[in-house]
Amino acid sequence: MYNEKVIDAFKNPKNVGEIENYDGIGTVGNATCGDIMQITIKVENDVIVDAKFKTFGCAAAVATSSTATDMIIGMTIDEALQVTNRKVIEYLGGLPSQKIHCSVLAEEAIKKAIEDYKSKK
């Protein structure tokens, strides 16, 4: 069902947790639907220097959270806003079709975290 890259990202996820004194937080999804994703970011000079996630969801949700946070670390916030779910899926080498919606959550959580950061500035 899942390819090896997805399994590996699920088995050994990177950036798990919540940044203390984060600069932005984005939480999307809901428990009724079975998916919640929370991403916190630390930003210095408009560059994302750290990102962490907490996810309630399936293996695909965990894998995309891990991958998406990994991708945005080191990016400027403008670059991070360009990270789409398609790019995350591409990086993971594909997801089963019924799991595509999980990757959308990652994109939305990043956008929300950046919005939060911007609104506080």
């Binding site: 088995k11 079975g34 399936c58 695909a60 965990v62």
Partner: peptide
């Protein structure tokens, strides 16, 4: 509580333990 079934199922499977889940994620429905 607080976690999702398919993730548990997959983690158990990676340890060689086969179970099933009532989570939506194990099926094609939401």
């Amino acid at each position: 509580y607080f976690i999702e079934g398919e993730s548990i199922l997959m983690m158990l499977d990676l340890e060689g333990i086969a179970v099933s889940s009532g989570s939506a994620c194990s099926s094609d429905s939401l």
